[in-house]
Simulated scan of single mutants.
Amino acid sequence: MKANNDIQKWKVLNEEDVSPSPWFPLLRHTVEIAEGQVIDDYYFSPLGDVVQVLALTPSHEVILVRQYKHGLGEILLELPGGMQQKGKSLIQSALNELEEEAGIKAHENQLISLGMIANNPTKTRQITYGYLLFNAEINSVQKFDVTENIEVLTMPAPQVLQYVKEGKIWVTDSMNFILKAALQYPEIFGL
Rank of each mutant, 00 (worst) to 15 (best):
G36P: 03
Y43R: 08
I117C: 08
T122M: 15
N96Q: 13
V152T: 07
Q92F: 06
N14Q: 13
E78Y: 05
Y43M: 07
E15Q: 13
A106G: 04
S19H: 07
P25W: 01
L47Q: 08
V12A: 05
I138F: 02
F24K: 11
G48F: 02
V146T: 13
F44L: 14
L133H: 02
G81P: 00
S21L: 07
P22N: 07
T128F: 01
Q37D: 10
I7R: 05
P80F: 04
A102G: 08
D49Q: 03
T30D: 13
E187R: 09
T147H: 15
F24I: 15
L133F: 04
K105F: 10
E166H: 11
P46S: 02
Q126K: 08
E166D: 15
N96F: 11
H29P: 07
A181I: 01
L72P: 09
D17F: 05
S45A: 12
H60T: 12
P22Y: 03
L13K: 10
I91H: 04
I178P: 00
A182Y: 02
W23L: 14
A102D: 02
S174W: 00
A118Y: 08
I178W: 00
D145M: 13
P46R: 01
G71V: 14
L114T: 03
D6E: 15
K86E: 14
P156M: 04
V160N: 00
K9S: 13
V53C: 06
G190V: 04
S113Q: 09
L72T: 14
N14Y: 06
N135D: 15
L132K: 00
P22I: 05
E35N: 14
I63F: 04
W170N: 12
F134N: 08
Q37A: 13
V146Y: 12
K11I: 09
F44G: 06
S59I: 12
F177A: 03
V18N: 07
I104M: 01
L111W: 00
Q162T: 14
W23H: 13
T154Y: 05
G71W: 10
S89A: 11
H60D: 13
P25T: 08
A3Y: 12
T172G: 12
K9M: 09
G103V: 04
R125P: 11
L56K: 00
K88L: 12
S45F: 04
S59R: 10
E15S: 11
V31Y: 01
I104C: 03
L26G: 04
V146S: 15
L161Q: 03
M1T: 15
P80C: 07
I112R: 02
K165M: 12
I75S: 07
L77V: 12
Q126H: 07
Y163N: 06
E101W: 01
G190I: 03
E101S: 04
A181E: 01
D41I: 09
V53S: 01
I33K: 09
I117M: 11
K123S: 15
F177Q: 00
A55D: 03
K143T: 12
Y163R: 01
Y131S: 05
E148I: 06
Q92G: 13
I117W: 06
Y129P: 02
